[in-house]
Amino acid sequence: MLSFLNDMPLSLAIGLFVAFAAVIGVVGTRLAHIVDDLADRTGLGEAIAGAVLMGMATSLSGIVLSVSAALRDQPELAMSNALGGIAVQTLFLTAADIAYKRANLEHAAASIGNLMQGTLLLCMLSLLLIGRFSPEVTFWNVHPITPLLFIGYVYGLHLVGKAQANPMWRPSRTRETKVDEPDEQALQQSLTSLWLLFAFLAAILGISGFVLERSASVIAQESGLSQAAVGVLLTSVATSLPELVTTIAAVRRGALTLAVAGIIGGNAFDTLFAAASDIAYRGGSIYHVVPDSVSLWVALSLLMTGVLIMGLIRREEQGPGRIGFESVAIIACYVAGVAMVLFNGSQDAG
């Protein structure tokens, strides 16, 4: 089976890529409903459930792809998929903002949990940059920044939970603020069946990521595109489809905090793609073998996340085009990043 996926023709690789991207989209829609029900049924709340459950589950396809690429000695694809995914998922919040007609999404979904998740993401991205520019020292082919990423993520979640349990700051309530309230129908559902369905859907996302990695590798080889371009523009978008679908589905369901938390929390978890890829990669520190064009996306993700946090604090009710100023700025940042990737690719080809 593995040899077949490695040696398949370009047409089949493209077909599989499209098919499994569609599978991710369908499964992601259902997953948003399950996580929202689990948030109510378990008492976790939308912010924590979105960050941990939906963030991790929708990231499975991406982490499988990055780790698989690192094992196959494709560090550039592994890291560009991880970092490009963080940027494109932040961009997806603008789609959710457009979908929510009543007000700016960041205005309606402001919460201490989402702000804490955003600052955790800034810290995790900063650690990635520190790893990139620190001395190239490894222990058993693993860079010291890798365990720090895992420790920082777990401790950050602990702080998020404490801040929500005993908040020292609350956003002002307005007529457009959407409060996280339990759904009575969700409280009647079997907790066991919800967990089993959640695990089943998450497994499908993981398998889809494995097939996407194989097909993306073939597309990169046959099309002449660089691994960075394929990772940033192709695989990161495809493996981030669950975030897009679940975020839009959560907005339509009225679970606004869940929608924003799923993106920000998923992005914080996605920084662990790099840590897992460093462990899987046997050629030394993965942070030091990727080109600057990949590291650029860490800086862009830092900028986009900073803008998003400003939007959550500013809470503009209506902005340009009936979306917030942060959505406009995030779109501009992502478009500039894509332009730089394409420009660098053309320079390398020349």
Rank of each mutant, 00 (worst) to 15 (best):
L2K: 08
L125R: 02
L10W: 10
L196H: 13
G84Y: 02
T58F: 09
I112W: 03
L10C: 11
A332Q: 03
S134W: 10
V335T: 11
M54K: 02
G55A: 08
S327Y: 04
I248Y: 02
A109E: 03
L159Y: 10
A32W: 10
L44F: 14
A220Y: 01
N6T: 13
Q89D: 13
D37L: 04
L157M: 15
A70C: 07
S190M: 04
I323M: 14
T305H: 00
G85D: 07
F4S: 11
L91Y: 03
T90R: 06
M116I: 00
Q221N: 12
I207S: 07
G118K: 01
Y334M: 10
A19H: 03
G25A: 15
A336Q: 05
F210Y: 15
G113L: 09
L127D: 02
A103I: 08
L83W: 07
S208G: 14
A238I: 07
I248P: 01
D292V: 11
T257P: 00
L44E: 01
V338D: 03
D292W: 05
V294L: 05
A199F: 15
I98Y: 13
E317I: 15
G337Q: 04
F343L: 14
A275T: 05
A57E: 03
V64H: 05
G265T: 07
A163L: 08
I331G: 02
D348L: 08
L205K: 04
F133C: 04
F273M: 13
E46L: 06
A329L: 14
L312W: 02
V335N: 07
G321K: 08
V26T: 07
I34D: 01
D278T: 12
G206Q: 02
S285Y: 06
H158Q: 11
L12I: 14
L12G: 02
I98N: 03
L205V: 06
I313P: 01
A249H: 03
K101N: 10
Y334E: 03
G350N: 07
G50T: 09
L12V: 15
S301N: 06
L205G: 04
Q89M: 15
L12S: 09
N114E: 12
L201D: 06
A99R: 12
A13K: 05
G161E: 07
V27W: 05
Y334S: 08
G224L: 07
G266W: 05
Y334R: 06
L225N: 01
L201R: 03
L302T: 05
R173Q: 13
A276G: 13
A336P: 06
I219E: 00
V18D: 01
R214M: 11
T235R: 00
N344L: 13
A255P: 09
K162V: 09
G15N: 05
S68M: 12
V137S: 11
L300R: 00
I309V: 15
P320T: 03
A275P: 08
L105F: 07
L91K: 04
L258F: 08
A70N: 01
Q227C: 01
S240E: 05
F92E: 05
D348M: 08
P75E: 01
L300V: 15
S193W: 12
S59P: 08
L191Y: 14
V179M: 12
L194C: 09
L115Q: 09
L212M: 12
V341G: 00
L122C: 11
A228E: 11
A22I: 14
W297E: 09
T146P: 02
F210P: 01
A186G: 09
A280S: 06
V23A: 12
A57T: 09
